[in-house]
C-alpha cells in the first residue's frame, strides 16, 4: 500500500555542530557569528525523516524535500544529501537560522506544499523533524499540518509500519522511555520524526547525479520568501548560561561515559 504515498519532508539546514557557534546581534536581529561562512548540514532530525521517507517510498510513491533556507547554502548541503536518497527538491529562498518565526515559516511551507505540481493531498504524508538542531520550537510542523487541514498528527515518531489495508501503525515516543502505539486509517497525516530506526545511508554519487538533474533547476528558480512585515522581533537574547566545553576522550567505556554525564548533571 505504501506505493501510493506522496511524502513531503520539511527540513532545512543547520550549522555543522562541530563548529564554534557564537550568538551575536546583527542588523537583522540575533544570529550566529560568521553564520554564512559556517559549513552547514541537513538538520539531523529532518535527515531521519528523509531517510525514513525514502525507505517507505522505495516500493513506490514519491518523496519531495521542502527546504527553506539561503539557497546558496542549500546547494552546498544538497551535494551530500542528494546522494543519500531519491527525492525532488522544493526550495524556498529564505532564512534558516535559529531565530525565525515558526508561524511565518509554517505559512510559507504550507503555501509551497499547496503549490507542488502532481502532489495528491489525499495520499500526503507530511514528514519532518520532531525537533530541530537550530532552535527547537517544536511547533512548525504541527502548524504546517493545521494549515493544510491534516489533523492526524504524530510527534516523536520512531517507526511507521504500513498495513495491508492501507492503514499504518505509528510508534511515538512518550514520557519515561515508552512508546505510544497508534493505528491510523491512512493518509493524510503529519509525522514528526525522532531518530527513526534507519542509519544514515552512504553517499551514492550515481543517485546524486540523478537527483541533481532536478535539484539544480529547483535551486535556480527558487524565489525569495518575502519577509513578514511586523513579524517576530526579539526584545533580548541571552548567551547560554552554561558554556559548551568540548572534551575529546578516547576509548572510554559506556559506563564511564554515563557516570561522567551524571556527574555533570549533578554539578
Amino acid at each position: 500500500m505504501s506505493a501510493g504515498f506522496h511524502i513531503v519532508v520539511c527540513g532545512s539546514l543547520v550549522p555543522d555542530p562541530l563548529q564554534t557557534l557564537e550568538p551575536i546581534r546583527g542588523p537583522q536581529g540575533p544570529g550566529l557569528k560568521n553564520e554564512m561562512m559556517l559549513p552547514a548540514i541537513l538538520d539531523p532530525w529532518a535527515g531521519h525523516a528523509l531517510f525514513e521517507a525514502a525507505n517507505l517510498a522505495a516500493s513506490g510513491g514519491k518523496v519531495w524535500l521542502l527546504s527553506m533556507g539561503p539557497k546558496a547554502k542549500l546547494q552546498q548541503v544538497m551535494m551530500s544529501v542528494a546522494q543519500k536518497a531519491p527525492f525532488e527538491l522544493v526550495v524556498l529562498d529564505g532564512p534558516a537560522g535559529g531565530f525565525t518565526d515558526a508561524h511565518f515559516t509554517a505559512r510559507a511551507l504550507a503555501e509551497a506544499i499547496e503549490g507542488i505540481a502532481g502532489l495528491d493531498r489525499s495520499r500526503l504524508l507530511l514528514f519532518g523533524g520532531w525537533q530541530s538542531a537550530s532552535r527547537g520550537a517544536g511547533s512548525t510542523l504541527q502548524m504546517v499540518g493545521e494549515r493544510l487541514g491534516v489533523l492526524d498528527q504524530f510527534q516523536g515518531v520512531d517507526e511507521i509500519r504500513v498495513q495491508d489495508d492501507g492503514a499504518f501503525v505509528v510508534k511515538e515516543r512518550v514520557e519515561g522511555g515508552g512508546y505510544l502505539v497508534s493505528r491510523c486509517a491512512g493518509p493524510p497525516a503529519v509525522l514528526g520524526w525522532a531518530t527513526g530506526n534507519l542509519p544514515e545511508p552512504p553517499n551514492n554519487p550515481q543517485l546524486g547525479m540523478a537527483n541533481m538533474r532536478l535539484i539544480m533547476p529547483a535551486l535556480q528558480r527558487a524565489e525569495p520568501v518575502p519577509a513578514e512585515p511586523g513579524g517576530l522581533s526579539f526584545a533580548s537574547v541571552e548567551l547560554p548560561k552554561a558554556r559548551r566545553e568540548t572534551r575529546l576522550v578516547k576509548d572510554l567505556p559506556p559506563a564511564e561515559v554515563a557516570a561522567d554525564i551524571l556527574a555533570w548533571i549533578k554539578s
Binding site: Q76, M79, Q83, N203, P205, G208
Partner: peptide, 8 residues
C-alpha cells in the same frame, strides 16, 4: 556539481 558530490 558532480565534482562537488564526489568531494562530499
Amino acid at each position: 556539481f558532480e565534482l562537488q558530490m564526489v568531494v562530499q
